[in-house]
């Protein structure tokens, strides 16, 4: 679980260790990654909205 989130976060900033990526692509089920990616994206958007609202005062 944590490993998936780690991979998604790494993907978000475009950085990933080679070995880790081999590991990820060895697992045949992409669903976990997709769900995690959608969640991380949602959180990212929410954080951005939050920051904007705080900045707007």
């Amino acid at each position: 679980m944590w490993s998936i989130i780690q991979s998604v976060l790494a993907a978000l900033i475009g950085v990933q260790k080679d070995r880790k990526r081999q590991q990820d692509f060895a697992s045949e089920k992409p669903l976990g990654f997709i769900v995690a990616a959608i969640l991380v994206t949602l959180i990212f958007v929410l954080i951005l909205i939050l920051v904007a609202n705080i900045a707007a005062g």
Binding site: I13, G14, V15, Q16, K17, D18
Partner: peptide, 10 residues
Amino acid sequence: EHTSVEVLWT
């Protein structure tokens, strides 16, 4: 591929 370079330029 050089992870620290990539982290840096991000």
